[in-house]
């Protein structure tokens, strides 16, 4: 079995994995990183979105072996020393989650989107999050939260 080295939320792991093992199953079943959920099997919903070397990927569509040598950031690794990431806080303040199942993926995708577009319009937020489905919120408050999170992140990182 292939042996991979992977860093997840700052902790280094070495794991022997079947070549077919999905990254999301490595995270959830092997490493106990259950903060990243699975919502579909066709890469439509985006619930399992994580950052792979800083870029968002749907971890159901990445093999664990493809992540060899990479650093993964999940929703569990965002808050630093107990302080929520500005995007997490914005989701809380704007009531951008109800059941919360899509939230980890939505937050990670939003953070990645801002790398290219740090001051997104409502329309670009809506298109930027097209690959992340939510069934509870109707997206209104998610859009508000992403805009607020973007503003707060801009203040933090001039």
């Amino acid at each position: 079995m292939p042996r991979i080295a992977i860093t997840v939320d700052g902790i280094a792991y070495e794991e022997e994995v079947e070549p077919r093992l999905l990254l999301v199953h490595l995270l959830r079943d092997r490493l106990g990183k259950t903060g990243t959920p699975i919502g579909c099997d066709t890469s439509n919903c985006g619930a399992c979105t994580v950052l792979l070397d800083g870029k968002s990927v749907k971890s159901c569509s990445v093999l664990a072996v493809q992540a060899d040598g990479s650093a993964i950031t999940t929703i569990e690794g965002l808050a630093a020393n107990g302080t929520l990431h500005p995007m997490q806080r914005a989701f809380h303040e704007e009531h951008a989650l109800q059941c919360g199942y899509c939230t980890p993926g939505m937050v990670m995708a939003a953070i990645d989107m801002l790398r290219d577009d740090p001051e997104p319009s409502e329309e670009s937020i809506r298109h930027g999050l097209e690959g992340n489905l939510c069934r509870c919120t109707g997206y209104c408050n998610i859009v508000r939260a992403v805009r607020r999170g973007a503003q707060d992140m801009a203040v933090k990182t001039p």
Partner: peptide, 21 residues
């Protein structure tokens, strides 16, 4: 009021049934 539920949901410290072993 902002929701009490959010803290665990926003940080991935959730207890979805599939999380449990």
């Amino acid at each position: 009021r902002r929701r009490k539920e959010d803290a665990r949901l926003l940080t991935g410290r959730t207890q979805w049934t599939d999380n449990m072993q």
